[in-house]
């Protein structure tokens, strides 16, 4: 049972627990985008970064196991500044038509942005033009909304067992593709919906769900 310090408080952690698990056990909020409890770890979105004393860089909470005597800070100014800037960078190339987006108030990226007090964007980035694509008969994909968290890629492989989705190209041109990124690449896709369920934003949706009014609380956007 390693004893660690979480935001100034001594807590007990069981062997192998990640910083994220520990924080959640203690009611501490850490934003995550690529993390999904049903999927393998990925560590790519970098929104769950925290400060660990002695570490040169910030540390990803979702994939870093706690170690004895670790001193963890989840809400220091440096941590909050980093998360905010990363969200701003993601939003800067995001399609940005939230007011007509199918995901509406269920969008995890918007929730995180509100939580982190992200206001008008200071950054201008190229917004890549990409057309809508079909995944089988029932799923529609909008790559301009994709934040490259890869949950869909992992879900297709790890839950559906199909492994049809993949990451292609590199850098800012990265894209989730199906098949060889060609018109009939989705021939083997059964439109099982597993990927739609895990998408944190509106990049994947079911055709049938379009035009259906959203219920629940409207999301108040700060800034």
């Amino acid at each position: 049972m390693p004893a660690v310090t979480l935001n100034g408080v001594q807590v007990e952690a069981s062997q192998g627990t990640t910083i994220l698990d520990l924080a959640r056990q203690h009611g501490v909020w850490i934003p995550t985008l690529c993390y999904h409890p049903e999927l393998s770890l990925n560590g790519s979105c970098r929104l769950c970064v925290v400060e660990v004393r002695g570490s040169r860089t910030l540390v990803g909470a979702c994939h870093t196991p706690v170690a004895p005597n670790m001193v963890i800070t989840t809400d220091s100014p440096a941590v909050l500044k980093s998360r905010r800037l990363t969200v701003e960078l993601l939003l800067a190339s995001h399609s940005g038509n939230c007011w007509s987006c199918d995901k509406a108030n269920l969008c995890e990226l918007r929730h995180i942005a509100v939580e982190l007090d992200v206001g008008p964007l200071p950054i201008t980035l190229r917004k890549p033009f990409r057309t809508l694509e079909a995944l089988g008969a029932h799923v529609v994909r909008d790559p301009t909304k994709c934040v490259l968290c890869r949950r869909c890629v992992r879900a297709c492989r790890e839950i559906k067992g199909a492994g049809l989705l993949a990451i292609a190209y590199r850098g800012f041109s990265c894209k989730v593709i199906i098949g060889q990124d060609d018109a009939d690449g989705d021939a083997a896709c059964e439109s099982c919906d597993v990927c739609v369920g895990v998408c944190p934003v509106g990049a994947l949706s079911k055709r049938a769900d379009r035009f259906v009014p959203k219920t629940g609380q409207p999301l108040v956007v700060a800034g």
Binding site: S44, L47, L89, L90, I123, I167, G171, F172
Partner: peptide, 21 residues
């Protein structure tokens, strides 16, 4: 770096592009 960045993580993928701009 923008050319060689693998595109996996957000700070580098988006950051390289922003710095080039």
């Amino acid at each position: 770096f923008a050319e060689e960045c693998c595109g996996k993580c957000s700070p580098c993928r988006q950051g390289c592009e922003a710095l080039v701009g």
